[in-house]
Structure formats: structure tokens, C-alpha cells
Simulated assay, not measured.
Amino acid sequence: MKGNIHGAALGLILCVLLAMASTAQAQELAPINVNTADAELLAELPGIGPSRAEAIIEERETNGSFESADDLTRVSGIGPATVEAFRDQVEF
């Protein structure tokens, strides 16, 4: 009887952990639209803090939308290595 309770508890814990992992993975996969995102959301990208997030917004307001990840190199302080770090996390 004790073994059945422990097995059931272990199964329940495993289900909860899998559900949490699925939720976290779904959140990680949702790309950020750099043409519409606010500074707080942009700052979540690797290598982009609050000041670069504001610079991204200023650049898009001044010179128009970004069409690709490589366009983000128009922003001072964002180079090819930074773009590669978040390329799969952005959309346009």
C-alpha cells in the first residue's frame, strides 16, 4: 500500500514538473516583435539592457521598422555577435 502511495505521489510530481517545463518552453519560444515591443520586453533579449532597448525604439521611430535581425546593427552598441545571440528570439 505504501509503495502505491509513493508511486502515485511521484507520478503527480512528475506531471507537475513536466507541465511547468512545457509552459517555460512555450514562453521561451514566443518571439519578440522588435517593431512593436516596448522597452521592457526588448530588454529581455540577450545583450540588450534598458538603454539599448530605448535605443532600438528611438531608431525604429526615427528611421523606420526593422526588416531583419541584421537591421538591428543600425543601433549603436548592437553588433553582429549581439544579433546572433537573439536572432531566433525576434520577429518583424
Score class of each variant (00 low, 15 high):
residue 2 K to P: 01
residue 2 K to C: 07
residue 3 G to Q: 15
residue 7 G to A: 14
residue 8 A to N: 09
residue 15 C to Y: 06
residue 17 L to T: 12
residue 18 L to S: 08
residue 19 A to Q: 10
residue 22 S to E: 12
residue 24 A to P: 03
residue 24 A to G: 10
residue 25 Q to F: 11
residue 26 A to Q: 14
residue 26 A to G: 09
residue 31 P to L: 07
residue 32 I to W: 07
residue 32 I to C: 04
residue 32 I to E: 03
residue 37 A to S: 11
residue 38 D to Q: 07
residue 38 D to N: 14
residue 40 E to R: 10
residue 42 L to Q: 04
residue 43 A to C: 07
residue 44 E to H: 10
residue 46 P to L: 07
residue 46 P to Y: 04
residue 46 P to H: 05
residue 46 P to S: 02
residue 48 I to C: 04
residue 49 G to D: 05
residue 49 G to F: 09
residue 52 R to W: 00
residue 54 E to P: 05
residue 54 E to Q: 13
residue 55 A to N: 03
residue 55 A to F: 01
residue 56 I to G: 02
residue 56 I to A: 01
residue 56 I to S: 03
residue 57 I to Y: 00
residue 57 I to W: 01
residue 59 E to I: 01
residue 63 N to Y: 09
residue 66 F to L: 07
residue 66 F to S: 06
residue 67 E to T: 13
residue 67 E to V: 08
residue 70 D to E: 15
residue 71 D to N: 07
residue 71 D to R: 04
residue 73 T to E: 10
residue 77 G to L: 02
residue 78 I to N: 00
residue 79 G to W: 07
residue 80 P to G: 10
residue 80 P to Y: 03
residue 81 A to M: 08
residue 82 T to W: 02
residue 83 V to E: 00
residue 83 V to F: 02
residue 83 V to R: 00
residue 83 V to T: 04
residue 83 V to A: 02
residue 84 E to P: 04
residue 86 F to S: 04
residue 88 D to S: 14
residue 89 Q to V: 01
